[in-house]
């Protein structure tokens, strides 16, 4: 493998890995705050792509489209949490997880009814002509996705570390009842955790739409997002990002090394091997409980 080929594959791996990382991040946040694994998050990514598609047809500036996607995504998450998740939050964990799966199917069904199954496309903010740098080709939208992914990651890390709401979320994730006794409004924390995560999911949809197109199957990204989150440790924000990038790079390089037929299996094989040796992923830690 030549150095140029390796660099070109690395660019492709980081590009697709950034997409997986954003989805993984959107899965990790509500899990950190409420312990709910949101299987419907893939469809929030799909919804974000379709919201962007509709807003783009209105010829709005990209910045306005971006802000509206964040806003609609956040409101959607808050409504879902209040109307559908909170009434069943004390049900067995498995029930809540299945409910999120059903919510995802509802969102997908509504999208299919309104838009059909035909794929559509939207432009990225910097056009789609590749950039040629030192003999390597970059898609400007992929660079934009990578930059946004880093910005979102730093913002989320800062949010958890420095804001009252972020600290409250960390407290609720460790022990919701104890946090309540300390005066934290647990329901409010859950609401914002869902709003933030669905906003990130919707932004992921907006960002990836120019690269992978707009169609109702975008939500299948959740599978790669989950693998990325598990590799990263599931409760770690940097872990989700590193997991996403790792899955993207592994897939792309294995396509050349072991062939296209097996390239999609390699990340799962590596995941299983990793879990054998590190059951809590790269950055996860075992939760100690007093008995």
């Amino acid at each position: 493998m030549t150095a140029t080929l390796a660099f070109q594959l690395a660019i492709a791996g980081i590009s697709v890995g950034s997409i997986y990382a954003l989805v993984a991040l959107a899965v990790v946040i509500p899990f950190k705050a409420s312990g709910v694994l949101n299987f419907g998050q893939g469809e929030m990514v799909t919804a974000g792509a379709y919201i962007a598609l509709v807003l783009t047809t209105l010829a709005l500036p990209y910045a306005v489209v971006f802000l509206l996607v964040v806003l609609v995504g956040a409101i959607g998450g808050i409504v879902i949490e209040r109307a559908l998740i909170r009434p069943i939050i004390r049900a067995p964990e498995f029930t809540v997880v299945i409910a999120t799966f059903a919510i995802g199917l509802l969102i997908k069904g509504a999208i299919q009814l309104r838009f059909g199954d035909s794929p559509a496309a939207i432009d990225g903010p910097f056009g789609m002509d590749p950039l040629l740098v030192a003999g390597l080709r970059f898609n400007p939208t992929s660079v934009w996705i990578f930059v946004c992914m880093l910005l979102v990651t730093f913002a989320v890390i800062a949010f958890f570390k420095y804001t009252r709401l972020g600290k409250a979320m960390r407290a609720v994730s460790i022990n919701a009842e104890a946090a309540r006794l300390m005066g934290i409004r647990v329901e409010s924390v859950w609401r914002w955790a869902w709003g933030i995560s669905t906003a990130i999911g919707a932004v992921a949809g907006l960002l990836v739409a120019p690269v992978i197109g707009v169609n109702p199957e975008i939500g299948t990204l959740i599978l790669r997002g989950l693998v990325a989150a598990v590799i990263g440790g599931f409760t770690s924000v940097p872990g989700a990002i590193i997991g996403g990038l790792a899955v993207g790079l592994i897939e792309t390089f294995s396509g050349v090394i072991v062939g296209s037929t097996f390239k999609n299996l390699v990340p799962f094989i590596i995941l299983m091997l990793l879990l054998v040796f590190r059951p809590y992923g790269l950055f996860g830690v075992a939760v100690a409980k007093r008995v």
């Binding site: 080929l5 070109q8 594959l9 492709a12 791996g13 590009s15 697709v16 997409i19 990836v208 690269v211 992978i212 199957e217 299948t220 990204l221 993207g248 897939e251 792309t252 390089f253 294995s254 396509g255 050349v256 062939g259 296209s260 037929t261 390239k263 999609n264």
Partner: peptide, 17 residues
């Protein structure tokens, strides 16, 4: 002759071949 999976999002390795 290269293969891919339904819903794949990246074809770089196949296209390089």
């Amino acid at each position: 002759r290269v293969e891919f999976n339904i819903n794949d999002k990246d074809f770089t390795s196949q296209l390089i071949q």
